[in-house]
Computed example of a mutant assay.
Amino acid sequence: MVRNVVVGRLRAGVELSALEPGLTAIAALDPPGLVSLALGVDARLREELWDFAITSDFADEDAYRAYDADPEHGRVRRELFAPFCEQIARVQLVL
Rank of each mutant, 00 (worst) to 15 (best):
V5N: 14
A53F: 05
F58P: 06
T55M: 09
D51K: 03
L45I: 10
F58M: 00
L19G: 01
T55L: 12
Q87C: 14
E48Q: 15
G8N: 01
L39T: 11
R75N: 14
D68V: 08
R77E: 14
A69N: 04
L23V: 05
D30K: 02
L39E: 11
S56D: 04
A69S: 13
Q87D: 14
L19A: 02
D30N: 11
D57V: 11
D57H: 07
L16V: 03
V6Y: 11
R90V: 15
D70V: 00
M1F: 07
S17F: 08
E48H: 15
I88P: 06
G22H: 04
L29V: 03
Q92C: 15
L34W: 06
A59K: 08
D70W: 06
P31W: 01
A66E: 06
E47T: 13
L49H: 13
G74D: 09
V76I: 15
D42I: 09
A12E: 12
V94H: 14
C85I: 01
G13T: 10
S36T: 08
F81Q: 02
T55K: 06
Y64M: 08
S36Y: 03
A82F: 07
A53Y: 10
L93S: 05
F58E: 07
G33Y: 02
S36N: 14
S56P: 01
L16S: 02
F52E: 12
A43G: 15
A59D: 07
D62L: 11
E15F: 06
F58R: 05
V2S: 06
S17H: 10
P83V: 07
I88Q: 08
V5E: 00
F58A: 04
S56R: 02
E79Y: 13
L10S: 01
F81Y: 11
E61P: 10
I88W: 06
P31Y: 05
T55Y: 06
L45G: 07
A66N: 10
D57W: 02
R11T: 11
F52A: 09
E61Q: 13
L93R: 02
V94F: 14
G33L: 03
M1H: 09
I54P: 00
L29S: 01
C85Q: 06
L95V: 13
S36C: 05
F81N: 04
L29N: 04
L95N: 08
V91Q: 14
L45C: 11
R77Y: 11
E15T: 10
L95Y: 10
W50T: 13
L34N: 08
P21V: 09
A63M: 00
Q92P: 10
